[in-house]
């Protein structure tokens, strides 16, 4: 059969779905650019089950294993790459294929680009946002992305909290709107300990954890991994926590790392001698939630 034009949209729904399932996210996106009708059929491809991840480093959005990078307009693409002109929301931009699974779109403002591409892809594929791993982006952009996510879903698997100039109110709002189920990473430092925020993810990395009180610690009952840096926990509070753990209140906990300058030098967990041999240190690796960790 030679390649002659045919009416794709006239195919029966099952056949049309089969055709779309053979296309990768880039081809589906290209198809969505053809017309409004073509845009509407994209979810038939099963795109609702796609995994959409927003990344900060490099600034990009992944749909399954296909990556939409965001680049600066001032850096022209090499001439030998495949070029396209695509429309994201109301912006028409240059797009260059870097490989079969990576392309880059060029923007005057990369953060606006990230937001626009993210909004557009979410709408086209109509899939849940699995992970938002970005920080060091302006709070306005960060919060508008959070607004968008929370308008579509109440849970997210993975979230990094830490936009530039995020206020305490912003961060409290994020926790009110989104439940982080699997992995929470946070570098925001609260000026005052927030009254109650939900810290019940499986894995929690809190880099500036000076605001974490025993109350917050007690809310981490689901935690498999708890990592607190720059904590202000004292010997008494640590002992309280460890006693709770000993009594079985943290049944899933496999890895605990608490770094605090408020702990005395003589502090030992539950009065036991230090587990780490400081003279002849022996490191053991254990894979917890897919990540290798040193344990003692």
């Amino acid at each position: 059969m030679t390649e002659q034009p045919f009416k794709l949209l006239h195919l029966p729904a099952v056949a049309l779905r089969n055709v779309l399932q053979f296309l990768n996210p880039f081809d589906l996106f290209e198809l969505s650019q053809c017309s409004q009708k073509a845009t509407y059929i994209i979810p038939l491809s099963g795109s609702r089950k796609f995994k959409l991840v927003v990344n900060a480093s490099p600034l990009s959005i992944s749909v399954n294993d296909h990556v939409f990078h965001i680049g600066y307009n001032r850096s022209p693409p090499p001439s030998w790459f495949l070029k396209r002109t695509w429309k994201f929301m109301d912006s028409t931009v240059r797009v260059v294929y870097l490989s079969r699974q990576q392309l880059i779109s060029y923007w005057d403002d990369r953060f606006v680009g990230l937001k626009t591409v993210f909004f557009h892809l979410s709408k086209i594929f109509n899939c849940a946002i699995e992970s938002a791993k970005f920080y060091s982006i302006p709070a306005v952009i960060y919060m508008s992305i959070i607004d968008f996510i929370s308008s579509r879903q109440s849970e997210i698997k993975e979230l990094f909290v830490g936009g530039e100039n995020l206020t305490d109110t912003n961060v409290t709002e994020i926790f009110e709107r989104l439940r982080v189920t699997d992995h929470l990473s946070m570098c925001h430092r609260f000026s005052m300990p927030p009254p109650s925020i939900s810290l019940n993810s499986k894995s929690m990395f809190i880099w500036n954890s000076g605001w974490i009180t025993t109350e917050h610690l007690n809310s981490m009952k689901n935690g498999i991994v708890i990592h607190l840096d720059h904590s202000t926990l004292t010997d008494d509070k640590m002992t309280l926590f460890l006693n709770d753990w000993k009594s079985g209140q943290f049944p899933n906990l496999q890895y605990l790392y608490i770094q605090s300058t408020f702990l005395s030098k003589t502090f030992t967990p539950l009065g036991l001698p230090p587990l780490q041999d400081t003279v002849n240190p022996q490191f053991h690796m254990k894979t917890i939630l897919g990540v290798e960790k040193f344990i003692y």
Binding site: E3, P5, F6, K7, L8, L9, E30, L31, C34, S35, K37, A38
Partner: peptide, 8 residues
């Protein structure tokens, strides 16, 4: 694509 699938 528009040509192949005869979309206006």
């Amino acid at each position: 694509m528009i040509k192949v699938i005869t979309l206006p």
